[in-house]
Design a protein around this nucleic acid. Structure first.
Length: 264
DNA sequence: ATCTATTCCTGGCTGC
DNA sequence: TGCAGCCAGGAATAGA
């Protein structure tokens, strides 16, 4: 499941191949992965060069001087440079003799293309690395809901998914059902620090390869070996040894340490 | 504002 | 061994 660290690693692995290259054409093999109007716009972008490839939240942005292509990999999507197309190849971006494949078993991935940023990207919340502790606390102010669903909300903060929310809450020793707006200043600041630390360490480890994730060169990440709670139901908490618990929050599997993250 | 259920999709797992 | 049935899950959507 590509979240912010995985998407960042994908973008970094593709940047040397893609930036400055002229897009010669796009072959949409599974129409489902193209957002409405995207296929036509990609046709118009053909012939122009990729100025930059960037990450915004979990989106990969290909910027051209006449438009933008935004790709979201959802859960099983992969972007692969010069791989062999297969049954799961949903789109092929051709750059002369080279090609960038969008592979996705489940076809949940989406390609957007248009003259400027699509709404889905425009309405994202701030980038974690661009948000100060004070800014984070300000965004928590007045929130009535529980902290985990809020951290999963991409309009609140862009880039976190199920893995990094659980890992961040564990590091900050906050229960996933804690009231978001009632976190004390020290606890909110601890959560902000935990989010940044987890994301930085995950990027440095090449992301988490839980199910299908690989970067643009097909390399797996190593951060899954450093997960402290995610997916570790019944195993000992690395901090205190208590068995990790699994509950369901917002229809998502949620792992936490009942001793380090008490409900209060 | 916040919550829940539903939908999309298919490999992998469970249980008989 | 075979197969039906269920599950996971990011995000949009509808409805409460």
């Amino acid at each position: 499941m590509p979240e912010l660290p995985e998407v960042e690693c994908i973008v970094r692995s593709l940047r040397p191949h893609v930036e400055g290259r002229r897009l010669s054409g796009v072959d949409i093999r599974s129409p489902r992965v193209a957002a409405p109007g995207a296929a036509a716009w990609l046709g118009r972008l053909a012939g122009s060069a990729v100025l930059r490839i960037e990450r915004r939240g979990k989106f990969i942005l290909l910027q051209f001087d006449s438009g933008i292509c935004a790709i979201h990999l959802r859960m099983t999507g992969r972007l692969l440079w010069n791989a062999i197309p297969g049954a799961w190849t949903r789109a092929v971006f051709a750059f002369g003799q080279d090609r960038l494949l969008l592979d996705d078993i489940r076809q949940f991935a989406r390609i957007h293309a248009g003259p400027q940023l699509p709404d889905e990207v425009a309405r994202l919340g701030p980038e974690p690395f661009a948000l100060t502790a004070a800014g984070f606390r300000a965004r928590l102010q007045g929130r009535r809901g529980r902290i985990k669903p809020l951290l999963l909300d991409q309009s609140f903060l862009a880039g976190l998914g199920n893995i990094y929310v659980d890992e961040s809450l564990h590091r900050a020793r906050i229960h996933p059902l804690a009231q978001a707006g009632r976190l004390s200043r020290p606890r909110a600041e601890a959560l902000h620090r935990a989010i940044l630390a987890v994301l930085e360490e995950a990027i440095a480890a090449g992301g988490s390869s839980i199910s299908d994730y690989v970067d643009g060169a097909g390399r797996k990440g190593g951060f899954q070996r450093l997960h402290r709670v995610y997916g570790r139901h019944g195993q000992p908490c690395p901090d205190c040894g208590a068995p990790v618990r699994r509950i369901v929050v917002a229809q998502r599997g949620t792992w936490f340490c009942p001793r380090c993250q008490p409900r209060r």
